[in-house]
């Protein structure tokens, strides 16, 4: 999108400058977006979950491994349509990581067993190269009954 805008407004100096400042495609990081689903005893907020994911990655791979994985929690929310068990809460979210560290991050996610005393389990629904694709994956789970 940005490239297109720069092209069509190539007369504009500011746009040209902006285009020059963008990272060239060859240097851009390759990322993967993991769509995940979480079941827990009670509702967990985003901050608690993020702390737990970070703890898990640091304890499994250490500081260098965590820096290589370039992990970032894009979004996380409660899945309100979830039915099923009475005392279960379900949430879905998207996590970003480096393209070659997907299995490592997956293992780290699987190692999480509780967050502030609440038992939980995480399942990766699917992996995508774009946020749009990942949100499509989460949408399939949300619509599931």
């Amino acid at each position: 999108m940005k490239m297109k805008r720069a092209k069509c407004k190539s007369q504009n100096k500011f746009c040209l400058l902006r285009f020059a400042l963008l990272l060239p495609p060859t240097l851009r990081e390759r990322r993967r977006y993991l769509a995940f689903e979480l079941i827990s005893e009670r509702e967990i907020d985003k901050r608690e979950l993020l702390r737990e994911i970070r703890d898990s990655v640091y304890s499994l791979y250490g500081d260098t491994g965590a820096s290589e994985s370039k992990m970032w929690l894009i979004e996380y929310g409660k899945n309100e349509d979830a039915n099923g068990g009475t005392d279960r809460c379900r949430g879905v979210g998207i996590l970003r990581c480096a393209h070659n560290k997907v299995e490592e991050v997956r293992a780290a996610l699987a190692c999480i067993h509780s967050a502030s005393g609440v038992r939980l389990g995480i399942r990766v629904i699917g992996i995508s190269g774009t946020i749009k694709g990942a949100s499509r994956l989460t949408a399939t789970v949300k619509n599931e009954k």
Binding site: I39, E41, R88, A107, A110, H113, L120, G121, R123, V124
Partner: peptide, 18 residues
């Protein structure tokens, strides 16, 4: 011992790689 301890097969494979 509970539903929260179950992991999906792909996750189990990732854990086994550890």
């Amino acid at each position: 011992h509970s539903i929260y301890d179950l992991r999906a097969p792909r996750e189990m494979v990732a854990l086994a790689s550890l």
